[in-house]
């Protein structure tokens, strides 16, 4: 017993560390307009490619150095994080809502509706995530809203699959039968019983997927298919530094570290949430 509680404690400590990471980064990024030392878009050409810790003639220190246009990397990483994290939250929020709704309806109504949505989901799952997103962004062109749509297009399937299979099991459960026998309306069963019972899984999946979407944003923006410069996002800044790897390692390095810390925090938090809320959910098997 002591062993088990010790394990739970250790797990929670990691989850707690993750939560602290996410909150700290979230706060820094949310407060970017007030705490960023420089303008993220306006550079000073006299201060191009300065190394981290460079102190110019006047004004605040360039803590993480400057890029090829003399823009402050720290300020760009802070402002870029707003875009990357907002995108992650938005994509996952919309996808989870869509996935949970369709998953519940599919499981509860069954029949034709289930078949159609299921087929669409199957075909979407047949594409590797990144390949699909790259092709779709090539089609609709870059930009924030296009990126949201392109990612949601595929992302909802993950919540849909999990929610549908859980709801199918729940539908047969004795308490749902009892409720139906007692004369509860279908809507009441859907919302009161099914929705409330799939929510823990949905929360766990949503948490873990935010990290994934942030990684996708980075890949797509890096290829020039996501967020468009000069607007910074973590992926855009990494791309900015690509041509200057030989002279200015810091441009690409720091936004990557920001991504890494944020995604690591989200994953630690998600794992902890899973252990606490829904230990049976095999998150290793969530498709890529």
């Amino acid at each position: 017993m002591r062993r088990r509680s010790w394990r739970a404690f250790r797990r929670n400590r990691l989850a707690l560390a993750g939560a602290i990471l996410v909150v700290a980064l979230g706060l820094a990024v949310a407060l970017a307009p007030w705490i960023a030392p420089h303008d993220p878009l306006r550079g000073n050409l006299a201060e191009r490619l300065r190394p981290p810790g460079y102190r110019g003639g006047s004004g605040p220190i360039y803590l993480l150095g400057t890029d090829n246009l003399g823009r402050d990397i720290l300020s760009r990483v802070l402002h870029g994080g707003r875009v990357s994290i907002a995108l992650g939250l938005l994509v996952v929020g919309v996808s989870i809502t869509l996935g949970v709704t369709l998953g519940l309806i599919s499981a509860y109504v069954a029949g034709f509706c289930d078949t159609v949505v299921g087929r669409v989901a199957d075909v979407l799952l047949a594409f590797p995530y990144l390949v699909f997103a790259i092709a779709l962004m090539g089609l609709v062109g870059p930009g924030f809203l296009n990126l949201v749509m392109a990612l949601v297009f595929k992302e909802w399937v993950i919540a849909y699959r999990i929610v549908r299979s859980e709801a199918l099991t729940l539908k047969q459960a004795a308490f749902v039968e009892a409720s139906r026998a007692a004369g509860a309306s279908p809507l009441r069963i859907l919302f009161r019983h099914l929705l409330m019972n799939v929510l823990p899984s949905a929360v766990v999946v949503a948490t873990l997927r935010v990290g994934w979407v942030v990684l996708m944003e980075a890949s797509l923006s890096f290829l020039g298919l996501g967020i468009q410069p000069p607007q910074p996002s973590w992926g855009v800044i990494i791309a900015d530094g690509r041509d200057h790897l030989f002279r200015a390692w810091w441009i690409s390095t720091f936004p990557g570290i920001a991504i890494f810390l944020f995604v690591l925090g989200v994953n630690l938090m998600g794992d902890g949430l899973r252990d606490a809320l829904d230990p049976r959910l095999a998150t290793e098997r969530i498709p890529e």
């Binding site: 890949s219 990494i238 690409s252 390095t253 990557g256 890494f260 995604v263």
Partner: peptide, 29 residues
């Protein structure tokens, strides 16, 4: 074990292409 768990989570939290850039900076440049 704990170090392994954290390193493994770190491994899935990295953008692969960024790791590639970092490796280039470190080992090639």
């Amino acid at each position: 074990d704990m170090a392994g768990t954290v390193i493994a989570l770190a491994g899935v939290s990295l953008p692969g292409f960024w790791l590639g850039l970092i490796l280039v900076i470190a080992f090639a440049v």
